[in-house]
């Protein structure tokens, strides 16, 4: 699968700092949007929290697809693993501390990432895509069959997180959950910015372009991609755990092909190979799904479809990627 990326924008920067002004600005934008969202939709914080959870899934997908070129339609497996692990820890084991639940989610996501990575990375191109689809169906079926653990098609209920840090109860308005989500997203964003520009991030960019070249430099693409899958799983696991903690149910849809496909759509919409592309795509898609579908329940999917076609045809770098490229050109022209 070849995709136009926005990596090139980063690559032209002559000097890069470890965590520089650009990162702080990025973080500031995320927090600003989060605050605006809070005041714009005070009665719909649950939706905003769901958007954050989805954004974590799309960021996670961006790591393997956007940065490493892996084709997958099964990425929700990592998200669902995190959600179920956090949920099961609470519902079955009475581990109700949200941070402990989060830890379960991260570990389960990373393990699912390892499993999926080992399987998916055995193939390339179309066979790889097929493997990923097979995997998500297996995960889904497994969760469905193990209903004494997962609640099967009824969903897993009985999740009861205690107060965050012993101080902040998860209130009915979803304020605590929202702030929790924003903080998690900010932390993940900072960590991923560091990883993306680290030696490992550079290695992955090389693998995406030419794995044979990387091999003749003595590095193993498979090892690196497996590692990236584990990291990606941990990130998706954060999203899954956040979902379980904030909604207090986990359904089979969190482990579905549909969710996997939608996350890919969100990523392409925003632009692959850049963290902001992933975030932009998620917000736009979820906005359409929730706000536009409420206003126009019959045509919102048509609109999303039309938007997607328009983006792929006329702005193949995605909404964010295209905008960033436009401003980079303007800046260069000056």
């Amino acid at each position: 699968m070849t995709m136009t990326t926005t990596n090139d924008l980063i690559a032209t920067a002559p000097v890069r700092r470890r965590f520089g002004g650009g990162d702080l600005a990025g973080l500031a934008v995320i927090l600003l949007v989060a605050v605006i969202g809070y005041f714009l939709f005070p009665n719909n914080l649950a939706l905003l929290t769901r958007i954050i959870a989805a954004a974590l899934l799309v960021l996670s997908l961006d790591l393997v697809t956007g940065y490493c070129g892996v084709a997958t339609l099964g990425h929700a497996a990592l998200f669902g693993a995190g959600a179920y692990a956090a949920g099961i820890a609470s519902a079955h084991y009475g581990i109700n501390d949200p941070l402990a639940m989060l830890a379960f989610g991260i570990v389960a996501g990373a393990v699912a990432g390892l499993v999926c990575g080992v399987v998916i990375l055995r193939a390339h191109g179309l066979p790889q895509l097929v493997l990923s689809i097979a995997l998500i169906h297996l995960f889904h079926e497994f969760a469905n069959k193990a209903s004494s653990w997962t609640g099967g098609s009824d969903g897993l209920s009985g999740i009861a997180p205690t107060a965050l840090l012993g101080l902040y109860e998860f209130d009915l308005w979803g304020r605590t959950a929202y702030v929790f989500g924003v903080v998690l997203l900010a932390i993940v964003f900072v960590v991923l910015r560091l990883i993306v520009r680290s030696p490992f991030g550079m290695l992955c960019r090389g693998i995406k372009e030419d794995p044979i070249r990387i091999r003749s430099m003595g590095a193993s693409p498979k090892m690196a991609l497996t590692k990236m899958y584990v990291i990606s799983g941990a990130v998706a696991g954060v999203g899954g755990a956040l979902n379980a903690i904030s909604t207090q149910v986990v359904g089979l849809d969190s482990l579905s092909f549909t969710m996997s496909a939608e996350s890919l759509v969100m990523l392409v919409l925003g632009g692959t190979g850049s963290l902001f592309g992933a975030l932009t795509g998620t917000v736009v898609f979820m906005f359409f799904e929730d706000v536009v579908s409420a206003a126009n329940p019959f045509h919102w999917l048509t609109m999303v479809g039309a938007l997607l076609i328009a983006v792929v045809l006329f702005a193949p770098k995605g909404i964010y990627g295209t905008a960033a490229a436009f401003f980079a050109r303007r800046k260069e022209a000056q």
Partner: peptide, 17 residues
């Protein structure tokens, strides 16, 4: 840099630049 880092066993580092 990638070649140097790989040779010195640092191409897998997750931090720094």
């Amino acid at each position: 840099a990638l070649a140097v880092l790989q040779r010195s066993g640092r191409a897998g580092r997750l931090f720094g630049n």
